[in-house]
Design a protein around this nucleic acid. Structure first.
Lengths: 152, 152
DNA sequence: CAGTATCCGGTCTGATACTG
DNA sequence: CAGTATCAGACCGGATACTG
């Protein structure tokens, strides 16, 4: 077990986890990102899938654009009028592993009775895939072997 | 890029990511978990580190106990009075990889100018560690090679 | 479709204070 | 220390409606 500590080694102000939580750590934002990672891009698609009040959705999408997780683009199909679309930036796309890891946490701890509705596999080997810690060369490190290193 | 989709392959109701978000996806809860993962266990330590209003903290800790992420224990030191402590359960501890992954996302995308205040290494090889997808045997799979598999 | 406007009731937040 | 009590204000959520 982790030893008792009276203070975190990194204050919340300097902590990038805390910063990430401030940027994306609320329910609607996370749910919007979930849908975006599944390919949704349009206002009304988010709205009808999630049931987000339109006012709130409007604000959250604006914030996500401001923080650079989504980009608002106008998309034009021949013969139809242009539509705005919210597409994931590289920064937003980079959250995919985090959210897959959280999905798999949920698979185990929130719904262990049933088989998970989605799983993830390697396109090539077709083997199923989980998130883990690896070294630079891609060798797995068990999480008990992790050590926190502080910069001074 | 991900193709446009009008609906997610898994509805939010069945989605374990959405469930996880409902359980832990708000700022205070995530920040409390951050501190807990760094070893904090006492009411006033959480309060002074995070500045959470006491009323809110009280409620969040209760929820975290109810959902089985923290366990409330009475801890007695010889000659001192017993103190309540909130210690991570196995379920709570299992979030560590998720939050480390989010920390590393923050390191790259929120604060790329400076070196991160904390990093993670393999105790044995002392090499630094990142999160990645691996097969059952621990071979890394690049995230472009991921495929979503739906259960029918 | 893709929003903005408005209204209302509820919860959260923040501050302060009090108690075992 | 570890909470509960209280109170004012902000923000949120839900419904409805209106516009380009």
């Amino acid at each position: 077990m982790i030893p008792l500590s009276r203070k975190s080694p990194v204050s919340p102000e300097r902590c990038n986890l805390a910063r990430a939580v401030n940027e994306i750590g609320d329910r609607w934002t996370l749910l919007i990102l979930r849908s975006a990672l599944y390919g949704l891009r349009r206002f009304d698609d988010f709205q009808s899938e999630l049931g987000t009040p339109r006012t709130i959705l409007s604000g959250r999408l604006r914030s996500l654009v401001e923080t650079g997780l989504l980009e608002k683009k106008m998309y034009k199909v021949e013969g139809k009028r242009a539509r705005p679309e919210y597409v994931l930036t590289e920064k937003g796309e980079a959250l995919r592993p985090v959210l897959i890891a959280l999905t798999q946490w949920g698979d185990v701890w929130l719904d262990s009775d049933s088989l998970p509705p989605v799983s993830f596999t390697d396109m090539q080997s077709r083997q199923s895939v989980r998130t883990a810690f690896v070294t630079a060369e891609g060798r797995e490190v068990p999480s008990e072997n992790l050590r926190i290193v502080l910069r001074r």
